[in-house]
Design a protein around this nucleic acid. Structure first.
Lengths: 164, 164
DNA sequence: AATGATATGTTATACTATTACATTTTCAAA
DNA sequence: TTTGAAAATGTAATAGTATAACATATCATT
């Protein structure tokens, strides 16, 4: 069972390039923030970047296990949590799955577009200052720390494939 | 363990009134859309309304079991899915929990504000036409069917309680 | 080298959700 | 009003997701 899909933002792109550049970005981030870029953590980020899809924690764990890392759930969850904390991996709540960030700029607000036709997950960005969510929260006096924005529907390709 | 919280929208309100009026709204909706308002379903909605919090499916199930309804998970999940489909219950993805809708007007776009201090879940609304999420999606040619908007942070009370 | 903090590995368990199938209830057509 | 199909319920079994607790190992300083 693997309902997680591609994250290609509905476009072709140079995948090899985005993997290496994302890894470099991770390295400099860790150096800068004095975070430890350990083998498990590095491998988890690589797997997510290579796979280029939303992956369940147990999918990631299978990879780690096969490569001689620890084989129990906490191994995967800890590395995933590390990257989520660092902002280089996002959790797609609706899928209970994790995806490497494709817009690794600080302070961005990801919007995940989940296609129910092909299970692709594309990451877009929303302007935080110009958003109904922020307005609703500030109207209530609520101080936002994290935001979840996910939409489900049909990507351009699947709209053509399915008539209605 | 019960991390789910209140849904009072951070204000006092007339709770007894909102329960009965929400039930009436449910009755007319079911009559109008020819949905079957069965005992389990009614009871599940009542429980969510009375409790006035985000509840896990198993919390709801415990109530049903204690009242002589079926005791297995599908009993709760089916009734919850029924109401989610009808739009009178929402799932809070970040909590894996369900909450009765407090803005039962058709076509609204809920925004859930989850306080990490007191576990309260308040439902606000966002203008669907005026949103960064919709803009990001339409820029990508994505056709939205459902939207998840959730924020986590501190409610007004908890902001005062915790200095930083 | 000693020490304290951080990270890893494992066991066990808790929590969330669905599949599959038997039974009952409902509703409408004959 | 019977009856037959569809919908709803009940249960058992299992799948999928996540964390607590604790032992061991590694790292970054003294």
């Amino acid at each position: 069972m693997n309902k997680q899909g591609d994250t290609t933002s509905f476009r072709a792109h140079k995948h090899a390039h985005c993997v290496t550049s994302a890894l470099q970005a991770a390295e400099s981030l860790c150096a800068q923030k004095k975070l430890r870029l350990t083998p498990v953590r590095r491998r988890v980020l690589e797997v997510l970047l290579e796979r280029h899809r939303a992956m369940g924690a147990y999918d990631v764990l299978d990879r780690l296990r096969a490569e001689g890392f620890g084989s129990q759930p906490p191994v995967a969850y800890r590395a995933l949590d590390f990257w989520v904390g660092a902002g280089l991996v996002h959790k797609v709540q609706k899928l209970n799955a994790f995806v490497a960030c494709t817009h690794p700029s600080s302070g961005h607000q990801p919007v995940f577009m989940i296609c129910r036709g092909c299970d692709t997950v594309a990451e877009g960005t929303a302007d935080p200052a110009d958003s109904a969510v922020e307005r609703a929260a500030s109207a209530a006096g609520f101080r936002i720390e994290t935001t979840v924005r996910e939409v489900e529907g049909l990507c351009p390709k699947c709209q053509k494939a399915t008539p209605q």
